[in-house]
Design a protein around this nucleic acid. Structure first.
Length: 914
DNA sequence: GCTTCGCATGGAA
DNA sequence: GTTCCATGCGAAG
């Protein structure tokens, strides 16, 4: 490494900046300025050094003994690689080695139109080398930055540091100076950068395609560097920074230079790139993928002097976007207002809005052979609000301020956006004042959204075509490639650029700018032919649409299924996952899929769309096969599940997760009863003792005892049973969801959410709201639950022998099974008849109850104690008044009770359980 | 009663 | 604590 470069910060001195020289410099006020230093000043050189430097012989003269000399692969000439002065004197070759600039000119000058080829592996993108613009005097203004690009080391750091600066006019030179100054640091940084690169590669945002020239002539670069001069033959002045890939045969080593075998200019693939202006990934994906690292480089390349570099936040990945119009003063945006040069805002664009447009998408925008430059600006996953009928697309503030015209009035201005088919849409770009800030929206997007058949979870992309300055809106369906839905009739590529025919050619896509009410009224998911294979879904009461048996979007892209009150949508939206991860989730979902079934009491509506039946339910799905948890006197816990085919009840392990469609053949735990022909383990009567009464019938415990039909058993699913257990003895029942959400129906004993009441019902938040309760939760509800359980235990302990065996409660998740009959949280005692004559069986039903559920259950238990005891042998005969005041109860609760508390487990709709 | 508009709210980052 | 933004919601048409 050159000591010259290492001594980048120029100290005030009177001697030649070249430490090998030490000649005094002139102090006549006319210093001989060499290269620019980081400080912005110039290396102060003596006359001799300056002269040599200007001739490009600085290294050869003064650094000949310094490490870093290499031989030109072509002519063998010694070239000093590393010092700041040597930067323009060589070109790094793709296959390794260097060419001196003279040879590089000869070799590359014979090449066809310049092309740059991305790495076959986005993990190791090819670092482009550069050549000077034709006619640029060497080593004049142009500075080769091959060192910079050859390694990732300097690049990220440098771009971070220079990002902001570079987007300003006249920063290019500064940038290049920085490049030169930083080149000396690269060797020290390589190790660190290697790790950083690895980190890059692991980042999901790596699949980013930069602003790309598609056979493009960047007007700015053309302007800056002039028309084709007298440079090397074949050099296109339109590509002053074009990246050359030297045909090196098949000796490329991706590990060393990121290029695959055969990636040379004669490669048909490469040729096609040249012809089409498309670069693409050769890794087999067929999609052009570039790392952000590459993107940044390419921005530098194309947008020389216009790049909005990454922020200095420390993130090496934050891509920045530029426009040839930015700072160049050319090509004002079509919509009237020049883009602002709010680079800070741009640098603050959140990663989730970073564009991930593929080259194919961009090509579709641009069209074959177009000379325009596509600049992906940002993208956004549509929220339910965005995709809804309101017609407002909330724009990320930073993106709006960075890429859309500046607006000072809330009314904003109309914005013409072109879609992939060339159709132009008129939106209103405006904002609302919001918390001393602004909230930017695009209004009137409904027609466009509908034309694209977009829904929540899909992604809209915004790009810009330069030099026209057109805004282009594309989209990407949530069922993106890899979802295995290639069989769909259209939009199979799941983006707005590939296979979505123009609306006029696609009867499924409205060409009207008027909202399609019919479509809008349809449940989005089921209405979307994209979702073939979907078969079951329900519309939530809140208006949210929940796919049930249907195939939902990947979790990473699924639109929110709940509206306000649920953070699921936002979480999902912000979840950045890689394809592999999404596949994992997909598989998990498929597993979970088998746990879903339609609610028993819900009437479905069948809609036929494109020959596919979609069954919709008004009620949320029931998750998993209904089972009944039973604990014997011996503490043995297991589940009872009914075979779907033969209706026989089978005993399965307590931890078994059963499909909604479970049959004896899946009884792998009991081979003797793994067939429907095997006899039942228990008689129906015995089962009736085990299984609580049916739902919704207003039946009481005593009634259950006389209920002997399996249909009766079947009529109650886990949640319903849980709820009914909770208020056993009441004439009303509570649905499972009501239990979870405390959306209790009106009872004769307690009004729904009576204001001011502190009972266990009223202290709960309204349905679907309120915090989730963890085991350590000390909220009022949970504390009340605990209190009441202690009370219950104490009361039970004070009663007869049956209660005396009421040990700490058990629950399905309890690690220590009880050794005696006991009520579990949400469970209930049943009679003395149990499997194989066992008595004192505690029954848990379904999922682990939440504290709220436990509370209700406990209250039900208490009520049972008081009310049912007199008429039943069940230990749960007491009754509790829902109007009980917890405070008063607390006063009467013994302090010494240390009964275990059922682990609070929040039961949510989206949590699969059995 | 429906839709649209504008702002407010609150969860998440 | 601040900012963003998804969405609720009331007012107006």
């Amino acid at each position: 490494m050159s000591s010259v470069a290492a001594a980048a910060p120029a100290p005030p001195q009177r001697t030649c900046f070249n430490t090998f020289c030490k000649e005094p410099t002139k102090s006549d006020g006319h210093r001989r300025r060499g290269w620019r230093l980081r400080s912005g000043e110039f290396a102060d050189l003596c006359d001799r050094c300056l002269c040599i430097y200007e001739q490009g012989n600085f290294c050869e003269t003064f650094h000949s003994e310094v490490a870093g000399w290499r031989s030109c692969e072509a002519c063998g000439k010694r070239v000093h690689c590393g010092c700041i002065v040597s930067l323009p004197s060589y070109v790094l070759l793709d296959a390794g080695g260097v060419d001196c600039m003279a040879c590089a000119r000869k070799i590359f000058g014979m090449a066809p139109s310049p092309v740059w080829v991305p790495s076959p592996s986005m993990h190791h993108p090819r670092m482009p080398t550069m050549r000077p613009p034709a006619g640029t005097p060497f080593p004049g203004h142009w500075r080769q930055a091959s060192n910079l690009w050859n390694t990732n080391s300097v690049q990220s750091d440098l771009q971070q540091r220079l990002a902001f600066e570079f987007d300003r006019p006249s920063c290019s030179e500064k940038f290049l100076q920085q490049v030169r100054a930083s080149a000396a640091l690269q060797q020290h940084q390589q190790q660190q950068q290697h790790a950083a690169d690895k980190k890059f590669d692991e980042m999901p945002e790596r699949n980013v395609v930069p602003a790309m020239p598609l056979n493009a002539i960047n007007p700015i670069t053309r302007e800056r560097f002039g028309a084709n001069g007298s440079g090397a033959p074949g050099l296109d002045p339109a590509y002053p920074y074009s990246i050359y890939h030297r045909a090196e045969g098949g000796n490329s080593n991706p590990s060393t230079n990121g290029l695959p075998h055969g990636h040379h200019i004669s490669d048909p693939n490469v040729e096609s790139h040249v012809n089409s202006g498309v670069y693409r990934d050769e890794s087999g994906s067929g999609l052009p993928v570039l790392s952000p690292t590459f993107q940044q480089k390419e921005q530098i390349r194309v947008g020389h002097g216009q790049m909005a570099g990454p922020s200095s936040s420390g993130s090496p990945m934050k891509p920045q976007f530029f426009s040839p119009t930015d700072g160049g003063g050319v090509g004002d945006m079509r919509n009237g207002t020049r883009p602002r040069l709010d680079i800070r805002a741009r640098s603050q664009v959140l990663p989730r809005y970073w564009p991930r447009s593929t080259g194919q998408e961009l090509q579709q925008i641009n069209g074959e052979g177009s000379n325009s430059v596509i600049t992906p600006l940002f993208e956004k996953m549509l929220s339910a609000s965005d995709a809804g009928r309101i017609g407002r697309l909330v724009l990320p503030k930073k993106c709006a301020e960075a890429y859309f015209p500046a607006i000072s009035q809330p009314e904003g201005l109309p914005l013409t956006v072109q879609d992939a088919s060339g159709k132009e849409w008129q939106f209103q770009f405006r904002f609302w004042p919001n918390n001393n800030s602004r909230m930017y929206v695009l209004e009137g997007v409904t027609p466009c959204i509908q034309a694209m058949q977009l829904q929540a979870g899909d992604t809209v992309t915004f790009s810009r075509i330069d030099p026209e300055g057109k805004l282009v809106m594309g989209f990407r369906k949530a069922s993106a490639p890899g979802s295995g839905e290639s069989e769909t009739q259209h939009l199979k590529s799941s983006n707005g650029f590939l296979t979505c025919p123009p609306p006029e050619n696609n009867p499924k896509i409205s060409t009207s700018s008027e909202p399609k009410e019919a479509n809008a009224n349809q449940p989005e998911w089921s209405n979307n032919p994209e979702n073939k294979g979907s078969s079951l879904a329900y519309v939530s009461q809140e208006g949210g649409f929940v796919s049930l048996m249907s195939k939902p979007p990947p979790p990473s892209q699924a639109g929110p299924v709940k509206r306000k009150g649920s953070s699921l949508g936002a979480k999902i939206k912000r979840l950045k996952i890689e394809t592999e991860e999404s596949m994992e989730l997909k598989l998990n979902w498929e597993e979970a899929q088998s746990l879903l079934r339609a609610p028993s009491n819900s009437v479905s509506t069948v809609t036929v769309i494109d020959g596919n039946e979609f069954e919709e339910f008004e009620e949320p799905p029931v998750v998993g096969r209904r089972t009944y948890f039973v604990t014997s006197q011996m503490g043995e816990r297991h589940q009872w599940v009914q075979c779907e085919e033969c209706n026989k009840w089978r005993k399965v392990p307590v931890d078994a997760l059963l499909n909604a469609k479970w049959s004896c053949s899946q009884n792998t735990w009991d081979v003797d009863r793994s067939s429907c022909s095997s006899p039942a383990e228990l008689t129906v009567e015995q089962l009736a003792e085990l299984i609580p009464y049916r739902t919704g019938g207003g039946t009481k415990r005593s009634k259950v005892k006389h209920e002997t039909s399996e249909a009766a058993i079947h009529g109650s699913d886990g949640l319903d049973t849980l709820a009914n257990l909770a208020i056993l003895g009441e004439s009303e029942s509570i649905s499972g969801s009501s239990v979870a959400g405390a959306d209790l129906p009106t009872t004769t004993r307690h009004p729904r959410h009576r204001p001011g009441c502190s009972c266990i019902v009223c202290i709960q938040p309204p349905s679907g709201k309120g915090p989730k309760h963890k085991q350590s939760c000390t909220c009022n509800v949970c504390n009340t639950v605990r209190r009441r359980f202690r009370t219950l235990m104490m009361r039970r302990g004070g009663k007869g022998q049956s209660e005396s065996s009421s040990d700490p409660p058990t629950c399905p998740t309890s690690p220590t099974p009880p050794m005696s009959p006991q009520p579990s949280a949400g469970g209930a005692y049943v009679g003395d008849v149990g499997p194989k004559g066992q008595s004192g069986i505690a029954v848990d039903v379904g999922p682990s109850p939440s504290p709220i559920e436990s509370a209700v259950a406990d209250e039900g238990s208490e009520r049972r104690k008081g009310k049912v005891l007199a008429t039943s042998s069940s230990p749960l005969k007491a009754q509790i008044d829902l109007n009980i005041q917890p405070e008063k109860e607390e006063e009467t609760s013994p302090k010494s009770v240390t009964a275990a508390v059922a682990p609070p487990v929040k039961l949510t709709d989206d949590a699969p359980s059995t």
